[in-house]
Amino acid sequence: MSERQITLEVLRYRPESESEPVFQSYSVPCQEEWVVLDALNYIKDNLDRTLSYRWSCHMAVCGSCGMVINDNPMLSCKAFLRDLPDHIRVEPLHNFPIERDLMVELDDFMDKLKSVKPYLIPDQPVAEEDGTYRQSSAQLKKYKPFAMCINCMACYSVCPQYGLNEGFVGPAALALAHRYNVDSRDQGRRAREDVVASNTGIWECTFVGACSEVCPKNVDPAAAIQQTKIASTVDYFKDLLMPGKRDKSGNAKQAAGDGA
């Protein structure tokens, strides 16, 4: 266990005493195997009890500790010092209002998450006495990667469209809508279309692709959005060419579900 002196430059914002954020430097004696979160906890416990940030699980699953570390949004509990230089700049996530220090306001995301109806909307729900749906491993595999999002907000932090266009639903929420759209148990795509396939939904995305590059869980929101665009376009032309031909739920399952 070798020790390493690291300088952590942390963006502070204390709304009761400052009108804009300022950087504050801390010199932290770190263990080589530490992550940035360990260094922040060292500061909190030993150097400065006024530093505020969110964290909980320390195992990359609760999604609390997303922050920008040397210009890259990542989970601070999985940002290993061994991969970083001796001088580390830590900032709150971009594209969100800073409430205090490294804590950003998530209200907008929480509203948008809800707006895409992220829950199963089946045509014919299985009744309680009948137990469960059947689903093959192949059907599971098609939506499972999009169900891995931990809402860490790294994708929103790096998405220029979300930063520049207030209404954009954004990568994680759209990926989650896609997750349900391609679940074999769900027929709710039409119900989600009003929000998802709108000008502030998938069509606001210009496929920058940064969201997928920074996602710590390999969710690939960019892929989810492009696939939704294709499915939605197919729907549009089907409606145009064969009005009234669509089933009640509006699902064109070949396009959305089976891909090939």
């Binding site: 400052e18 210009d71 209002p97 800073i98 930063g163 920058v208 692709g209």
Partner: peptide
């Protein structure tokens, strides 16, 4: 007196900040 949550302005040169944005542009 508490200031509202701080919104960092996005400069017009935002796309020069990272290689991935430059490649996108």
């Amino acid at each position: 007196m508490t200031n509202p949550p701080y919104i960092r302005p996005i400069p017009a040169s935002w796309w020069l900040r990272q290689g991935r944005y430059v490649r996108y542009m």
